[in-house]
Design a protein around this nucleic acid. Structure first.
Lengths: 152, 152
DNA sequence: TAAGATTGATACATCAATCTTT
DNA sequence: AAAGATTGATGTATCAATCTTA
């Protein structure tokens, strides 16, 4: 499957993708920090834990869910633990493993921050697209994510 | 314009956007480092300088073009200068200003790296979308980038 | 020997001063 | 006083060991 060099038009779409991501995430991160003293990375961890069964995930599972490196996650969880948002728990079946568990304080922080954050997502991103375009975008992104292309 | 909380479907598109960005840029960055010892951030600087008139830009212009912070850029240009890819030049009209100029070595590095990188973009991103979808994606991203939403 | 997680060294980003020129 | 850029302090990410258990 020889994929050649893309045309200028295709590259322009790729660049727009990069720029849109940078602008929107920068704005959302700044908003979260200002209003709730919560970096977007923390918010992302809180979301993934809140959706996991029992509000907890193995460190490695969380690392891949959250799009951060294994070693980066150790420190990130350190910080969040010292703020009381998560707690580490040993794993019963496998003494090597650790869980990160959402604390009530962490869940509360997520609940406080989520409404404004989601309104921000709507204002800056989804709200700019009519339903039809949004569905098309979803389909396109699904193609990018599907098959091949595993996590490194 | 009261933008409310987005539906679950809309949020799913937003998350797919985040995940697609993370996966594709991670893979492209790793490829560039392996094959040309060139981080994606450096590549981005090289591209912007190569497209600027005279192959040079004021630091502040480059900073906003390249989606990095002003202060982050100073150090980034330090590193790239010590590798010989760019050179600083004082600004004639305004003694406060500095230009970053692409050197021949920087231009050569970009020329070497670009073909494989662009093939990677096509393989991981644009090549997964038929023309019609790609154009739709481009239009959607344009809407996200247009109006409002300036750089912070 | 490999998997899960942490640690140490290092690179990079970010924010608030700072310094110079306008 | 404000703009352009750099510096210093600090926070965060990344990579290669390391340690423990499977």
């Amino acid at each position: 499957m020889a994929s050649g060099t893309p045309s200028a038009e295709r590259i322009a779409v790729w660049r727009a993708f990069l720029e849109a991501h940078a602008r929107v995430t920068d704005a959302l991160d700044a908003d979260l920090r200002e209003s709730h003293d919560l970096p977007l990375t923390w918010y992302d961890v809180l979301v993934h834990l809140s959706e996991a069964p029992g509000g907890r995930l193995r460190m490695a599972e969380l690392a891949s869910a959250v799009l951060f490196s294994r070693s980066g996650l150790t420190r990130l969880i350190d910080r969040m633990e010292s703020r009381g948002y998560v707690r580490r728990e040993p794993c019963a079946d496998d003494a090597r493993g650790m869980f990160a568990r959402l604390t009530p304080a962490g869940r509360a922080a997520l609940r406080r921050a989520a409404p404004a954050h989601l309104r921000g997502v709507e204002r800056l991103f989804t709200g700019r697209l009519p339903d039809r375009e949004l569905r098309a975008l979803g389909a396109a992104l699904k193609r990018v994510l599907d098959d091949g292309l595993g996590r490194r």
